[in-house]
Design a protein around this nucleic acid. Structure first.
Ligand SMILES: [Mn+2]
Ligand SMILES: [Mn+2]
Ligand SMILES: [Zn+2]
Ligand SMILES: [Zn+2]
Lengths: 151, 151
DNA sequence: TTTTAGAATTAGAATGATTCTAATTGCATT
DNA sequence: AATGCAATTAGAATCATTCTAATTCTAAAA
């Protein structure tokens, strides 16, 4: 983060570890690639520690600092999203479609829910004219299907 | 928090510092009352430190620990809400009506926005049948009226 | 092929917000 | 006045994250 600010980043020209994904400009080093892959194959919104554990099976020597670095680069590049549901650990999500988060207060699971096609959320709130909306964070808390069933 | 768990709380029987507000069961000690009053007369969603500063003008010796204690009791009693917009400091809000938070990314201000009367948010997301919703946290990020105007 | 300069990675220290601990103080009933 | 909790406090501890200061990589330059 400090280092990358010192100068314009050298344009990646190398091979397998420098895939330009989705038009983004991140250098996809092996670690960043692994962190991304872990996240892309997860639907449970893991924390940095969860990701560390999962990446360790492929790269046993990766450090927590590197996981945080990778997550920051991937987030800045727009390849993943940081999700803040409660105080404490952030969670991460590789689903880039517009969606909201459902958090089960019984089992703790976090899942994605997608809006109906015609959903235009901004019009439901009386925001003053002139307000510009860039992003919405919507978290729904409750009891999931499974937890409701086994009650 | 620890102390209050040891036993059923003695029912308040005293006078001015024990007002039962809105059917809640908190003892409204002078400090809790001041913290609540500061919040009730604020629309800017102050942090614990902001609240400490404001309460200090009336109670110069109040401690940060007490502010946190008061905020926790008031939150548990349902008299105020804790608001988590980004990582870092929590904010607090005494508006108990259903509302969402607008956060201006330019000036940092946080304000309330109220939904249209016919707004039924849950139906817009395809939550699995059987899901029970208890609460929604909706944060809208963007540029406020004033900041948009002065650009 | 060696050099070199910037970027990536690392362990551990530092930070910041909150929570916990262990007194001490205050109040309401006895 | 004595008793017994609950409230309050300062400071320590905790937890997630960010920063620091090396060290290692890598890709282009020489
Ligand atoms: Mn998600
Ligand atoms: Mn509010
Ligand atoms: Zn569940
Ligand atoms: Zn603004």
């Amino acid at each position: 983060m400090n280092a990358s600010a010192t100068r314009a980043p050298a344009k990646p020209t190398g091979l397998d570890c420098r895939l330009a994904v989705l038009g983004s400009d991140v250098r996809l080093t092996p670690h960043r690639r692994e962190v991304f892959d872990v996240l892309a194959s997860s639907t449970d919104h893991p924390t940095a520690y969860d990701i560390l554990d999962r990446v360790k099976s492929r790269s046993p020597h990766i450090s927590l600092a590197t996981v945080y670095n990778c997550l920051e680069h991937l987030t800045t590049a727009g390849l993943i999203k940081q999700v803040q549901l409660e105080r404490g650990q952030s969670r991460y999500c590789a689903n880039l479609h517009e969606h909201v988060h459902f958090h089960c207060e019984t089992c703790g699971k976090v899942s994605d829910a997608h809006p109906a096609a015609d959903f235009d959320p901004a019009k439901f709130w009386n925001l003053p004219k002139g307000t510009k909306v860039t992003r919405m964070d919507i978290a729904i808390h409750g009891t999931c299907e499974a937890c409701t069933a086994k009650h």
